[in-house]
Amino acid sequence: MQPPDVKIRRKRLDRGIKARTDSVFVIAAPGDIIYVLAPRVLPVVALLILPFFLSEYHQEVLVHASVVGLLALSWDLLACCGLFSLGQSLFFGVGAYMAGMMDYYLHLSIWIGLPLATLSGGAICSILLAPVVRLKGVYFAMVTLMLPLLFRKIIEASGLLGGTLGLSTRGSFPNEWVAVYLGIIVFLGVLFGLRKLIDSDYGLVLKAIRDDDRAVMSAGINIYARKVQALFVAGSIASFAGAFLTYRYEFVGFSVFAWDYAILPLAAAALGGPGTFAGAALGSMILVPLSEALRAMGGLRIASYCLVLMVSIIALPEGIFSFLERKYHQFESLVEVK
């Protein structure tokens, strides 16, 4: 029972923290510390210790979720500067084939081949798409949609790069744990790195390009150069994902240019909330395990998968993460008023 003279009122934690600090968190109360740190630290710790409790099969699912997560993050970065891509599979496939070539033809070790494939993949993608960064919206999307198909058909028809048989590579990760943790750590690093980037002045310019490219041009910014830079970063992220899977499966075939790798990241970002990066990451962490869990449904798997996706997007158009973020900022605690 409360004594009659003590009143209780609701306090928005978020407001108090913002009022007391100016972008640097100088906070003391344990409640505040938990409030600020929990959403940042908990998911990281959870992801890092999770593999210890998982079977090999579930570890595989987690790695696959991280890979799709990287593709979704790469998609989200492009979306941030107004480039709507339907071709994450292009970046993914180029990275995968670059890794395959590094290993099959050049016999490079994985620790040289993986970073090389990442960067060269990013470079190839930005060179391929540089001529079309002037296109907007659906026109850019169409080009990115066509390119993976083109690559796939060229490899299929010409027999280059192993043709329909693909390339069997020899280099691989020393053991499972290295692969699992490399996947997770790069995924988390890219997630927090991109969030940091988009909050910087550089990221501000990228977002402004999406809003009004003419205003950005009149402010003396070469928007095409900025878009190509964003393409390089996004391309490198997705190329890493592709190269990573090549080394993990010790094989690369033209299936890396398949639709799945274009649609899954887009669906993940839409489910989680585009433009936040955390949304794209969260979305892929939900979608990939969900699609595995639905395997029991047999023939109806894809149907139920689509149903879940549609219902969630209609019910929460802003995305799961944006919804949670809003609730987080509105979080209230009860305090005594003296």
């Binding site: 002045d201 501000l204 310019v205 003396g220 910014i221």
Partner: peptide, 11 residues
């Protein structure tokens, strides 16, 4: 923040 954009220009 609108003014950050021109402040990021080469000029």
């Amino acid at each position: 923040k609108n003014l950050i954009i021109p402040l990021c220009s080469k000029r």
